[in-house]
Design a protein around this nucleic acid. Sequence first.
DNA 1: GTTGAGCGTT
Length: 257
Amino acid sequence: MSHFGKSGPPDIRDTYSLLVLNITFRTSADDLFPLFDKYGKVVDVFIPRDRRTGDSRGFAFVRYKYAEEAQKAVDRLDGRIVDGREIMVQFAKYGPNAEKIQKGRIVESSSKTTSRRSRSRSPRPRHRDEYRDRDYRRRSRSRSRSRGRNDRSRGRERDHRRRSVSRSASPDYRKDRKKGRYDEERRSRSRSYGSASPPRRSPNPSRSPSPRRTSQRAESADKGNNNERSPAPKSVSPRAQPADSRSLSPRRSDADE
DNA sequence: GTTGAGCGTT
C-alpha cells in the first residue's frame, strides 16, 4: 500500500518536484518509489488519480530532497522503460497550490536562503539542455505521431478533464450542447462536489419536456446557433438514436436526485 | 478489460 499521499504533502519547503509522464495506468507510487529512491532521497511520491474511478491518470509526481539527485534521476529515469512503457521524467513546472516553482524547485516566501543551492542548477543548464534535446528529439518521433494523431480529440479530453468543475458552465449551455457519455460523468462529478451546493439547480416545478424544448430549440437555432457546429438537429431517427434517450435521462435524474 | 496528452493531494 502506498503511504504516500495518504497524509498529504509532507514538506514542500525544500523539495524538488519531478513530473513523471507516460507511465502506465497501473503503475503505482510504490512501484516508482524504489525506482526513484535508488537515485536519490525521495521525499514523497504522489500519483494523481481520478475522483470517480480512482484510476491513475498516467503520470506521477516524485519529490526529491536535493536537486542534484532529482536531476540525476531525471537523466537516468527519463526514457526508461517502466512496466513496458517509456516514462518521461522532467521537473514540474506548476505547483500544487500555485506555489512558486523554479526548475522544479518549490520556493516559498520564507525560503530566502537559496543562494548556495542556486548554483545547483546554474552550473549546467546549457549542457543538459543540449544533451536532453538530442535525446528528446530522437524519441520525440515516437510520441509525435501519438500527439499529432488527433489534436481535436486531445483538446476535447483535456478540456473536459482540465476544466474539472466547470464554474462557467451555464445550465443553458450545458443543455444546448449534447455531450454524450461525458454528460453522466459531469453530472456525477457535479453532485460529488455539490455537497455544499444545492443538488437541484433548476427548481422549476412546471417544466414542459417536449413542447418547451422544441420552441427553445427552434429559437436558438434561429438566433445564432446556426454558427455553431450543430448542422444536424434531427438528421437521424429519434427512435434509433441512443443519444436521445440519454438526453431524456438527465432531466429525470435531476428531478429524482 | 479499454485510453495516452499532460502538471498534483490531506
